[in-house]
Structures are given as C-alpha cells and as structure tokens.
Nucleic acid binder design. Structure first.
Length: 150
DNA sequence: GCCAACGTTGGC
DNA sequence: GCCAACGTTGGC
C-alpha cells in the first residue's frame, strides 16, 4: 500500500468536482515519469492527496483513494480529443489512467506555503520535482499532512 | 500575464 | 548520444 499526491488544476477538475462525481478516471497525464508511476506502481486501495495547482489557492485540497489500477487512456486513440496521440497503438498504448474515488475534502486546506515551511515535508517529492503531476508520498509525510488537514 | 524551470523533440 | 530549440508547467 502506497501514498500519492495527484495534481489537478481546479478550474479544470477540483476536489469539489470529485466530491460530486465520487469517482473519476485520472486522465490527461502526458508525462513519462508520471505515467510510469501510474502504470507500474499505483495499486487499488492506495491513498491519494488531491493537490490544486495553477490557481489562486495552491495546495492540498482533499483525500482520495485509487479504485482501479492502470488501464489505457481511451483519449489517446480519439483523433477529436485534445489528448489524442497519433503515435500510440491500440495494442501498445503509451498512456494510462487510474480511477480515483473521493474520500474527503480537507477540513483545513493546506497551502503550498505551509508545505514549504514544514520541516517534516522538506523531502516531499512535490517540492523536489515541481513539474511532476503524480508524486509519491512517504508514510511519515502522509501522516503529517493528514494531521494538518483533518 | 510573466518568467523560470524543466521535459521533449529533432537535427546532427 | 548530445544539445539547442521549443513547448509546457506552475508559482507569483
């Protein structure tokens, strides 16, 4: 069982959208490192923090859980889709999605500023690789953040 | 909207 | 396989 942090732009898809939908395919990941985490490591039951990026309130907004492990992202085969990838083959797909289930909204939103200021989170992968949209979270980091937002 | 960081592409 | 050019991300 592992823990992850998934980024989303709330204007595009927010924790409130997930609360409404209950479950959603985490689509549109087009970065190899993020893809590899999803395809090779993320398992059903893994814990997820939902992080809002590129917006007014940047930070951790809620909690989710993986409800389905990696399967090919259908968008990559649809020429009319924004995420269409002509180089991806049906029997050798390049891009994957996992399904995510809503667990809870953060009672207390944890802003990036507070994440950066926390000694316990100084090694958080989010801070080391600021452009990666799927990052692992250690158990100690998970517990610390959970306590902050609960 | 700006700009720095950084991932990807493509020519050599 | 290197590296410059280019495109995208993401915080401010």
């Amino acid at each position: 069982m592992a823990n992850w942090l998934l980024k989303s732009e709330p204007d595009d898809y927010s924790i409130d959208d997930l609360a409404r939908d209950i479950t959603t395919p985490w689509n549109g990941i087009r970065n190899f490192q993020a893809r590899n985490f999803m395809r090779d490591q993320i398992q059903v039951g893994d814990n997820v923090f939902i992080y809002h990026s590129s917006c007014k309130k940047v930070g951790i907004a809620g909690i989710a859980k993986i409800s389905r492990a990696a399967y090919p992202d259908p968008d990559q085969f649809d020429p009319s889709n924004h995420y269409y990838d002509a180089k991806s083959l049906i029997d050798d797909p390049k891009w994957f999605v996992v399904d995510v289930n809503f667990v809870a909204k953060a009672n207390t939103f944890l802003p990036l500023k507070a994440i950066k200021a926390a000694e316990a989170l100084k090694d958080l992968a989010l801070l080391k690789q600021s452009r990666l949209s799927v990052v692992p979270v250690t158990q100690a980091q998970w517990d610390y953040i959970l306590a902050q937002i609960s």
